[in-house]
């Protein structure tokens, strides 16, 4: 069976600083993959290499069996959608217009009734109805983040690439957004997957099927949350001591990580 995403020997450098080293990863359909790592570990760079925002120095990235280097950007944007950490706006548009930009890869010029409906559905799905016609630059950081996620959802790709999608959100919206991503990924019929760069270990443990731990540009561990989120791995990568409470002992349905203190080097 063909992987949805297959990465082989991916490397990327900023000048002499090698950010990604020999990354190999296979992602199938209906997988929620959390990418964890310290600041500068290469999480954002990794996502940008999958989306051709950055050109890797070495290695190949295939989506549904097609090398992304051979795909047009329009075809690639039908297969993947990317949510950046923040969006810099020069000229603002209404929330509806921003979400409609997600339909760009599917529109030649004229907007169809189906496009209108999909955008409306997405706006309702993400709970943006109250400010659907407000200007994007008049929104709070969290509201903007939800709008950009809505744009990615409206794009209707097979693979979501989300770079810290909950960094500006309050607790309720963090949980809500992660549940919605989980909901999309869990739809067996559509076979969509998501790769989410995130700092919140507990959120990753709760929602992800799989956790990839990046350390110094390489994959240190790759597996289920309980396989990867061990006290030793967390101490090694993040430099903090912690207690990992397995799901069968905790109050939550997933394992929990209780961070205690930083480890003196």
């Amino acid at each position: 069976m063909t992987s949805l995403l297959k990465i082989e020997g991916l490397e990327f450098s900023w000048g002499s600083n090698q950010v990604l080293k020999d990354i190999n990863l296979d992602v199938g359909g209906n997988e929620f993959v959390a990418i964890l790592g310290v600041n500068g570990a290469g999480k954002s760079t990794f996502l940008k290499c999958i989306n051709r925002i950055l050109a890797p120095a070495k290695g190949t990235v295939e989506i549904s069996g097609r090398n992304i280097a051979d795909m047009s950007l329009m075809d690639l944007s039908k297969a993947t959608s990317y949510v950046p950490q923040s969006v810099r706006t020069s000229f603002s548009m209404s929330v509806f217009d921003v979400v409609m930009l997600g339909r760009r890869p599917h529109i030649s010029w004229r907007i169809s009734d189906d496009d209108h409906e999909r955008v409306s559905e997405t706006i309702r799905f993400l709970g943006l109805e109250d400010f659907a016609f407000r200007k994007f630059d008049r929104l709070s950081g969290g509201e903007r983040q939800r709008v950009v996620i809505a744009k990615a959802v409206a794009q209707d790709p097979m693979l979501f690439l989300l770079d810290e999608p909950t960094s500006d959100l309050d607790l309720r919206n963090q949980v809500s957004i992660m549940k919605k991503i989980r909901h999309i990924v869990s739809d067996v019929e559509s076979g969509k997957s998501a790769i989410v760069a995130i700092h919140d270990i507990n959120m990753a443990a709760r929602f992800a099927d799989r956790v990839v731990l990046l350390d110094g540009g390489s994959i240190k561990a790759d597996g289920t949350p309980s396989e990867v989120l061990t006290e030793a791995n967390i101490a090694d990568v993040f430099g903090v001591s912690c207690d990992v409470i397995p799901e069968e002992y905790g109050l939550s349905s997933s394992l929990q990580v209780l961070v205690k203190d930083e480890i003196e080097k």
Partner: peptide
């Protein structure tokens, strides 16, 4: 170029690429 300008003027280069615009 109207659609492409919408993506470029709203969110810059990364936003444009992720919407299929070079």
């Amino acid at each position: 170029w109207a659609w492409d300008l919408n993506t470029l003027s709203l969110g810059g280069d990364d936003f444009a690429i992720s919407s299929g615009v070079d």
